[in-house]
């Protein structure tokens, strides 16, 4: 019997009452599919008419910058990892709330393939360095610019975060204040996918 891929429900394919026929991996696949569809649903919500909205499910625009530690920051180098790309600024109150959580996520999920990348939209790098030290950021941060903002559809409001899967494709755009609990669930989902 080809039960490995079947998804039965009680009253149809079950052998007894309240029993369903669903191998664990099929159950997992179903759940992940549902999660993926939910992500798609969110993405299609027209939060704005920015071009960035259309970036969801497309390849993340590549960029290379020099980070605050004078190291090369190449988005393409993180292919194979799940990337949380966060546009932020020192004057952005919601950003300051998110970033300690991102530090914890980098610590918690780094070994599973998470890489957080920060792009500061500040005007003054000195303020960014100060904030980076104060927040003990454990992920690379580079200064943003108009070109980078344009690449991501116009970063005209902060915070703005993109979740990029292991294949370099943007899976979600989070703008403004974000429910970090939901974002973490999404991250976990992306980290579980290969």
């Amino acid at each position: 019997m080809n039960g490995a891929t079947s998804l039965g429900i009680a009253g149809k394919t079950a052998r007894g009452p309240w029993v369903i026929q669903m191998p664990f991996f099929a159950l997992r696949r179903f759940a992940l599919t549902f999660l993926f569809l939910a992500v798609c649903s969110m993405a299609s919500e027209a939060q704005s008419a920015f071009a960035a909205t259309t970036l969801v499910h497309k390849k993340a625009p590549e960029f290379v910058r020099t980070d605050l530690d004078h190291k090369r920051l190449d988005l393409n180098a993180y292919r194979g990892k799940v990337v949380l790309l966060n546009f932020w600024a020192t004057w952005c109150a919601p950003c300051q709330v998110e970033m300690p959580v991102f530090v914890a996520w980098q610590r918690r999920y780094g070994s599973r393939g998470l890489q957080i990348v920060g792009i500061s939209m500040d005007d003054d790098p000195a303020l960014v360095r100060e904030a980076s030290d104060k927040l003990k950021l454990n992920y690379p941060v580079a200064m943003g610019d108009v070109k980078l903002g344009d690449l991501y559809g116009g970063v005209l409001g902060l915070p703005m975060t993109f979740l990029i899967d292991r294949h370099g494709k943007i899976q979600a755009k989070c703008q403004g204040e974000t429910d970090l609990g939901k974002m973490e669930i999404r991250l976990q989902s992306l980290l579980s996918s290969r």
Binding site: L27, L37, A38, S41, M42, V97, E177, T178, D179
Partner: peptide, 20 residues
């Protein structure tokens, strides 16, 4: 599974309630 699905439905938007 239903719980996961319900959770997924909550994903309608990542915009969160007013805080901070």
């Amino acid at each position: 599974t239903a719980g996961l699905a319900a959770l997924a439905l909550l994903f309608g938007s990542l915009h969160c309630p007013a805080q901070y």
